[in-house]
Computed example of a mutant assay.
Amino acid sequence: MSQFNPSKLHVHYMMPATSYEPVVGRKYTLTHSDKTGDLFLNIGTQYNLNAIDKKNKDEVLAGWIFQEGRYLLKGRVYVTSGEFNEQLSKIRFTIFQKELSLALTAIIYGDRKFYFYHPYLLDAPIYIQFESSLPEFHRLMYCGTPRWYLLTA
């Protein structure tokens, strides 16, 4: 797994989102550069679709929701809808699993001021949906809490 380097993280707030609001509907778009290793985090009320690499589809998308009486951070990564064969889908799935901790650290660390205003979210669960048309790679994974990622950043 890659090591998180805060100096490689570039954060951009997309209005009307700020460092303290909104909670519900707050969305994260995390992309990266394979060449430089830089991570780009957009925080807004919508995903930054312009930042997404439509060919590779290797971004991490996440957002805060209120469900069944509790807040949770729910995200997704895209494995395949059939355009990638099983071997390539397995490679994508494995890479996402390997790098997910780095991605979540970047998202949580990049929005760390937000938790100053909303400390009750530090222990909210994080779930990531691996989206795939192949059943073996389509799964929902529990990935800890924001507190865990802030402590390990």
Rank of each mutant, 00 (worst) to 15 (best):
K57M: 14
F66W: 10
F116N: 07
T152D: 11
D53A: 10
Y149H: 03
G44M: 04
R76Y: 10
L30K: 00
E21H: 14
L150K: 06
Y78V: 12
D111R: 02
K113T: 11
F4T: 04
F130N: 04
L49S: 10
K98M: 01
T145V: 02
V24G: 03
E68Y: 09
T29C: 08
G44Q: 04
Q67W: 11
K74A: 11
R112G: 02
F4Q: 04
G37H: 03
F66N: 05
S132F: 00
S7Y: 12
Q87C: 11
I43T: 00
Q46Y: 09
N56L: 15
T18Y: 09
A124T: 08
Q67K: 07
L102K: 14
K90F: 15
E83N: 06
G82I: 13
F96T: 05
L134E: 02
L73M: 10
G44H: 02
E99L: 02
Q67I: 12
K98V: 02
L30P: 00
I126G: 03
N56C: 12
G37D: 07
G144P: 00
T45Q: 14
G25P: 02
Y115C: 00
S132R: 00
G144M: 00
G144F: 00
L122Q: 10
P119E: 07
E99T: 13
E21S: 15
A124W: 11
A17M: 03
Y149F: 02
Y28W: 12
F66P: 01
A17D: 02
P16D: 14
R26P: 04
S7W: 09
F114H: 05
E131W: 08
N50W: 03
I95F: 13
L39I: 10
E131V: 12
E59D: 14
L121E: 08
R147V: 01
I126N: 09
P119A: 05
Y78E: 14
Y13A: 10
Y149C: 00
S101G: 15
K90W: 15
K27T: 11
P135E: 13
F93H: 03
F96C: 03
R92N: 07
P16I: 14
P6K: 15
G25D: 09
H32N: 13
D111P: 01
W64V: 02
G144T: 01
A124K: 05
E83Y: 04
A51T: 06
T80A: 08
